[in-house]
Amino acid sequence: FKVLVLDPFTRDIIAPLLKVNELRKYGITLHLMLGADRQPISDVPAIYFVAQTEQNVKRIALDVSVPLYDTFHLNFSSPLPRPSLEELASECVKTDSISRVNKVYDQYLGFVSLEKGLFSLAQPRSYVKLNDPAAKDTDVEQAVAGMVEGIFSVLVSLGVVPIIRCPKGGAAEMVASELEKRLRDHLVTRNNLFTEASQAGGSFQRPLLCLFDRNFELAVAVQHGWTYQPLVHEMIGLNLNRVTV
């Protein structure tokens, strides 16, 4: 008997992957939202799978201090920044509840797999955020950082370090250079996330990652796929492989 606690972002990650009955197969009898009012359940381990936001960390610290559950297994969809981890630790020490936190994991799962060969970074209105003339620098940086973190999660999951190509002078270049920096910073550490994959007989050939900018790739915007799925997407709207009529 285990409780799974999610936030809207991680709920969208899990939804296309596992159905409720499949969650039961893995002992998850209850799945709840972090932001909702929840009753304490004693003698039950809780698995938290949430985004690495400050708000989430604060809420988790509160849950641990109550305590809402017996033990806490904390999983963040992307790496938890050091200051947030320290804040979580100090809050738990303050309320003398640190022993209830079993483990804290960085999961590198910050993307939504919709099909075998299709994923989404699940960043709504990202085009507007990047192209709005009134957008602040911090908003653009935040949007780019979100994309970089999502693509980095994909690369860690695949265990590959790609060669990156992009057009010059746009959002795609910003994403590409930040991603390159992120990869370089990570690869200098000895036991990095790509070591295991390369030792397990990973390919010596590096894949090619092409980042396109919709402003320059105008053909994409006017090209329409003539299959059932794009038709449904355009007529009714397709979200997380689901259609709401």
Binding site: L4, I13, L17, N75, K103, Y105, K116, F119, V154, S157
Partner: peptide
């Protein structure tokens, strides 16, 4: 298969195994 890799990672997490 990226989707399968993500499913495996999620299942590992639900089974309380380390990543």
């Amino acid at each position: 298969d990226l989707r399968q890799k993500q499913i495996d990672a999620v299942v590992k997490m639900l089974n309380l195994n380390s990543p």
